[in-house]
Computed example of a mutant assay.
Amino acid sequence: MAKITKVTINADRCKGCSLCTDACPKKILRLATETLNSKGYHPAEMTDQEACNACGFCATMCPDVCITIEKEVG
């Protein structure tokens, strides 16, 4: 059975603090360089959804609870 992981980042609430990007052991999160949210921040974004192992470090570190991790067994 394959695991499917979906990481959702609420870009509008993200303040670009980069705590999630620092916490990611796979280094597949980054701050968007060409996108600004409604507050004027560069939000976090996932670079490789398939490489994510759903460890949850990013969601745990996010002080604004902007990251949701969903795991499905398929």
Rank of each mutant, 00 (worst) to 15 (best):
K39T: 03
D22M: 03
D64I: 11
D64W: 04
H42F: 02
K27I: 07
T8N: 07
M46T: 15
T21P: 00
A32I: 06
D22H: 04
G74L: 15
T8K: 04
P25G: 06
A11Y: 00
M1T: 10
E72Q: 12
Y41P: 01
C52G: 12
P25D: 04
K71S: 11
G74D: 05
V7G: 09
K3F: 01
K27W: 02
L29Y: 07
C55F: 03
C66Q: 10
K71C: 09
F57L: 13
A32M: 02
G56W: 10
C55S: 09
C24A: 11
V73F: 05
E34Y: 12
I9M: 08
M46N: 12
P63K: 04
C17D: 12
A54P: 05
A2R: 13
A2W: 06
M61I: 08
E45W: 07
S38E: 09
T68V: 14
A23Q: 03
C62W: 00
N53K: 12
A11N: 01
C52V: 11
G16I: 14
I69N: 10
D12Q: 13
D64T: 13
C58M: 04
K39R: 05
T68K: 12
T47I: 12
V73M: 13
D12F: 01
K26N: 10
E72P: 01
S18R: 07
I28D: 00
C62D: 03
G16A: 14
T5G: 07
D48W: 05
R30K: 14
K6E: 10
I4R: 04
V65H: 13
C58D: 00
I9Y: 00
Q49G: 08
G16F: 12
V65T: 14
P63R: 03
K3H: 06
A32V: 09
L19N: 15
V7M: 06
K3P: 00
T33E: 08
A59E: 10
V73A: 11
A2M: 08
K3S: 05
F57Y: 09
I4D: 01
T60Q: 09
E45Q: 14
T21A: 15
N53C: 04
E45F: 05
K3E: 04
S18A: 14
E70I: 15
T5V: 15
N10V: 06
M46C: 14
G56C: 11
K71W: 02
T5F: 04
T8D: 03
E72V: 15
N37A: 05
D12N: 12
N37T: 07
T21M: 03
G74C: 10
A59S: 14
I67L: 14
D48Q: 10
A11K: 04
M1N: 08
A59G: 13
N10I: 08
A51E: 08
G56E: 10
A44W: 00
T60A: 15
M46L: 14
D48S: 14
M1R: 08
V65F: 11
A59V: 13
N10T: 10
C14M: 05
A59T: 12
P43C: 07
H42G: 02
V65N: 13
T5Q: 06
C58I: 05
A59F: 06
K71Q: 13
I9F: 04
D12M: 07
